[in-house]
């Protein structure tokens, strides 16, 4: 269950990584560009650029397992959400503003740690797929010995 405080953190525009795996348990992973939390706090939607989805889609469709790592570059606060796929669809035009806002915020975070915006200027964030996940677990992932402890 994601409470309002955690939801606020997750949606502020952070580094987002989506991990999957194939039938042979070989992991795959790619960058997501935005994340929204459903009002019920039990589901999230992760937006993955269309150019990245090709690597992840076979895994997501075949076994449905996903891990989403969310990190704030400035202080390395991070958590990880485990989930299973509920549905995958094309992101719609009205969702583009959310993606742009969160992705821009993320680039600002990178700038704060000394990575010029120009480095990420060619990164693709649109068009995107919206992957809705049912949240099965949430773990602390800030660096240190407490990483891996359940937080919700």
């Amino acid at each position: 269950m994601i409470d309002a405080q955690l939801a606020s953190f997750l949606q502020e525009g952070l580094g987002l990584q989506v991990g999957t795996r194939d039938a042979a348990l070989r992991p795959s992973g790619g960058r997501a560009v935005a994340l929204t939390v459903d009002p019920d706090g039990r589901h999230i939607v992760v937006y993955i650029p269309e150019v990245a989805i090709g690597r992840l889609l076979p895994d997501l469709e075949s076994n449905g397992h996903a891990a989403v790592s969310i990190g704030r570059p400035m202080d390395d606060r991070a958590c990880q959400i485990k989930g299973t796929v509920v549905d995958i669809r094309q992101a719609e035009d009205h969702e583009r503003a959310v993606i742009t806002t969160q992705f821009t915020s993320y680039l600002g975070q990178l700038e704060m740690i000394g990575i010029p915006r120009a480095v990420a200027s060619c990164w693709t964030n649109w068009p995107a797929r919206a992957v809705r996940l049912k949240v099965t677990a949430i773990f602390e992932q800030s660096p240190g010995p407490s990483a891996g402890h359940p937080i919700a």
Partner: peptide
């Protein structure tokens, strides 16, 4: 993991 749960970390 061996039971098929992926993990993503920085």
């Amino acid at each position: 993991s061996s039971d098929g749960i992926p993990n993503a970390a920085y």
